[in-house]
């Protein structure tokens, strides 16, 4: 079982990394979700698999002979919630970026130019460059 899941994790990680390396930002986001799931499955497997024993403490406070470890689930739950928040923020960020910069292609996005460049008289005499192409010196 562990071996199977290990291959699954590897496959998901490969898919995720491949998608994250694509220039399109939506592909990047899907890649992040896939890679995040690979990480979650990895934590799950690292906490030992097994369906026979419950993660319960008995009423008198004593432990069963074999007991499942509930901590990996708690960790994964935290990671899922965080991943969900990040993905939600990412969608809005990419949407705003598309609106402002006119592209979702990360490679076509301009390098950081001077924050709010104030047009100086010198620049206006020379060929006026459109705002988007004003790339730093």
């Amino acid at each position: 079982m562990e071996v199977l899941i290990a291959f699954l994790v590897g496959g998901l990680a490969a898919v995720g990394v491949y998608l994250m390396l694509r220039p399109h930002l939506i592909q990047f986001l899907i890649g992040f979700l896939v890679l995040g799931n690979a990480a979650n499955l990895l934590i799950f497997t690292a906490g030992r698999l097994g369906s026979q024993s419950p993660p319960l403490v008995q009423r008198d406070g004593s432990l069963l002979e074999t007991i499942a470890n509930p901590l990996p689930q708690a960790l994964i739950l935290t990671a899922i919630v965080i991943g969900f928040g990040l993905a939600a923020f990412g969608i809005v960020l990419f949407y705003k970026a598309e609106q402002a910069l006119g592209t979702l292609n990360a490679e076509a996005m301009p390098e950081v130019f001077e924050p709010a460049p104030a047009p100086s008289p010198v620049d206006q005499v020379r060929a006026p460059t459109p705002e988007k192409e004003r790339i730093p010196v």
């Binding site: 705003k96 970026a97 390098e111 950081v112």
Partner: peptide
């Protein structure tokens, strides 16, 4: 949401 900010933020 300045342009440079969004480009750097991504």
């Amino acid at each position: 949401s300045g342009k440079a900010q969004l480009a750097g933020g991504v």
